[in-house]
């Protein structure tokens, strides 16, 4: 594992509080994930790939933005691994990089129709940009 990968891995584990070694690779998370089909990588892969140093692959994937944040995998994981927290933390890590914004403020405003609740707009602002 190179230095950058190690740094990223350590950071994401620290800020997410996830311990991938607790995973028994049962696939409950991916069995319960409501947005499985839309995501390039699936919840169980997030856990395994972080452990195996494939973190940048995950960070470069749009999958981190397609997690619904619904915590079904967190709630139902029998090993207390909480893959969803890892996905969220990876998205955060991505934002923290230079030019790491996923969308700018204007992009977000442009995406919203007139019925979008304010809460959703605010959430997008928080999730997609620094």
């Amino acid at each position: 594992m190179d230095q950058n990968t190690r740094f990223l891995t350590e950071t994401v584990l620290r800020i997410s509080g996830v311990d991938p070694r607790k995973c028994m690779k049962c696939g409950k998370c991916s069995g319960t994930c409501p947005n499985y089909d839309a995501m390039e990588y699936h919840p169980h892969q997030f856990v395994s790939m972080v452990e195996n140093g494939l973190i940048e692959q995950l960070m470069n994937s749009n999958a981190v933005y397609l997690c619904l944040g619904c915590m079904a995998c967190v709630e139902r994981c029998p090993r207390h691994v909480a893959p969803g927290k890892l996905v969220g933390a990876l998205a955060q890590l991505k934002l923290r990089k230079q030019d790491g914004n996923h969308k700018g403020g204007n992009d977000i405003a442009a995406m919203a129709d007139e019925k979008v609740p304010q809460q959703l707009l605010m959430a997008a602002m928080r999730k997609y940009r620094k």
Binding site: P34, A38, I108, M111, A112, V116, A123, A124, Y128
Partner: peptide
């Protein structure tokens, strides 16, 4: 699924 409604 609302949190991704704008993105996807």
């Amino acid at each position: 699924g609302a949190y991704v409604a704008m993105e996807d």
